[in-house]
Simulated scan of single mutants.
Amino acid sequence: MNSISFDFARFDAAIVDLDGTMVDTLGDFAEALNRMLRDLSLPPVAPAAVERMVGKGSEHLIHSALLHVLAPTDPDGAQAKARALYDAAWARYQHHYLAINGQHSAVYAGVVEGLQALRARGVRLACLTNKPGAFARPLLAAKGLDGFFELVFGGDAFERKKPDPLPLLKTCEALGTVPARTLMIGDSSNDARAARAAGCPVVLVSYGYNHGESVRGVDADGFVDSLAQLVPAA
């Protein structure tokens, strides 16, 4: 990884993504989506397909899942059907996700150690995710991660989501830090594009979702295989 990430004298704060960066939530997504689809009398979607849909917020995830199951039998009408079903799908998805939130997910190895090391270096932490805040905060609490963060912002906290830079700029504003001294830690091109546009340095984990593509092809300042690698042992 690039040496920029080891010099924490450069940083006042870090903004950390949630899904695919701190917690492997693919099981939660797949379970909630398939319960939703079952309620709508639609076929299920495989976790491997869900993985490529994750990262752009729940609205995108639900619409993508609907298209995925509708298109094979009605490619010309799938878009219209997905739009017609969306409101009912969102209501069922929200119901099911809140019921199973965290039950089919796990904290990635090295996350707790990495967050502890960052805090020990005096780096202030905020969690910024495209996941709705009503899903994000209970998940962080269930996994014992909420105590690390001064601020938690979900995808519904601001007018636009990552990869738009607005959420990062607003998070820096809330922290009272400048983007150049605020490190973005994520798992996908969404995080990197938002960071670049906001003026934040960015490090990506190698194990996340990134829409089914290799993260190492993304423009970032460095890559790690574990958050524990962010801060070297003393």
Rank of each mutant, 00 (worst) to 15 (best):
V50Y: 03
A180E: 15
S188M: 07
R216N: 10
V215L: 05
D225M: 07
V202N: 00
T177S: 15
V231Q: 05
G77E: 11
L175R: 05
F223P: 04
V218K: 02
A14W: 02
V112Q: 13
F153M: 06
P44T: 12
R181N: 14
C200P: 00
D7R: 11
L40T: 06
L125S: 06
P72L: 07
I15T: 07
F135K: 01
A13Y: 02
G110Y: 02
A194R: 00
S105A: 15
S41W: 04
D12T: 10
P201N: 02
A71Q: 14
D7Y: 08
A117P: 06
D225W: 05
M22L: 15
A32M: 06
S105F: 09
A89Q: 03
A14T: 09
A99K: 13
T25M: 07
A197M: 02
K81V: 00
A141G: 08
A89N: 04
D7H: 13
E31D: 11
P165R: 01
D219A: 14
F135G: 02
A91M: 09
T73R: 14
D7G: 04
G20P: 06
V231F: 07
P201E: 01
Y97Q: 12
A32P: 03
H60W: 05
I15N: 05
T171Y: 01
S5A: 13
P44H: 10
L37P: 00
F149L: 09
L151D: 06
I100M: 14
A195K: 01
A71D: 11
P165G: 07
P132C: 09
S214D: 15
I62V: 15
M184A: 06
G27F: 01
A117W: 00
D24V: 07
S64W: 02
L115N: 01
E113F: 04
H96K: 10
A99W: 02
Y93G: 03
G155E: 04
L40A: 09
M36Y: 01
A49S: 14
S206N: 13
D87N: 12
G186N: 05
A220D: 00
T177N: 03
Y209H: 08
V112I: 13
K81A: 15
F158N: 01
A195E: 06
R119L: 13
A9M: 08
T25G: 06
N190T: 11
F29N: 01
E59N: 12
G208T: 07
G102M: 10
H96V: 09
G186T: 07
H68P: 00
W90S: 10
V107Q: 08
M184S: 04
C200M: 01
Y207C: 10
A71M: 12
V224A: 11
P165Y: 02
L98D: 12
T129E: 09
A88Q: 15
G133C: 08
D225C: 08
S188N: 07
D12G: 14
W90K: 15
A9F: 06
S206E: 14
V69H: 00
M184P: 03
S214N: 14
R83L: 13
L128D: 00
H96S: 12
P43D: 09
A46Q: 13
F6M: 10
F135T: 02
S206R: 15
P132W: 09
T171G: 06
A220E: 00
G57Y: 04
D39L: 05
N130M: 07
A49K: 13
L128S: 04
L125Q: 05
V69A: 04
A99V: 02
H60N: 14
R35M: 12
A82W: 00
F149Q: 08
E159M: 11
A117N: 09
V112Y: 02
Q116C: 11
L166S: 09
